[in-house]
Amino acid sequence: MPRPLSQPLPLAGERRRHRRRAVLLSAAAAILLPAAAHALDATPLQFDQLYKSFGVRGYEFSDALAALNGKPVTMRGYMAPPLKPESRFFVLTGQPLALCPFCQSDADWPADIVVIYLRSAAPMLGGGEAVMVSGRLEVGSWTDPETGFVSQIRIVDAGFRRA
């Protein structure tokens, strides 16, 4: 079996390429998905607030994160290089994945990723683009039945715009 967090999406990506793709996609990407309804009462969440520890026995969610479970949030991050030009989900990372610090034999995701499930499929940006996401926070292990991708923190019913 593939390792769930290392296989589904490649980490390749570099700013120059992203800029070019972003130009191609700019018309689509400029459409602000209807996130405004959430944004009004949504709590801004930051990457350094997700976990309180990254231990050998597993990571621990922060109390703040647990308290926001099921509530509307907004989050700024970077879209990881997507698999397809249009998708219902993407991975949000705290740092752009254009720089690959883990070019060892097995490329790997950073520990603190958030998986974004959109309300409907949307054109993706090039990997490494800064985006603002809003939607409902979901905390806890979940395996996507379609892709097998295991996630711990998700924003669902989400919309996003470039940030």
């Binding site: 290392s6 597993g58 806890g140």
Partner: peptide
């Protein structure tokens, strides 16, 4: 390399099953 020892539902795990090898 602890992540492959942790059950899938544990944050930080890389397993695809619920076996807790620790």
């Amino acid at each position: 390399g602890s992540p492959s020892f942790l059950a899938k539902s544990t944050p930080g795990s890389k397993r695809t099953d619920e076996d807790d090898y620790i």
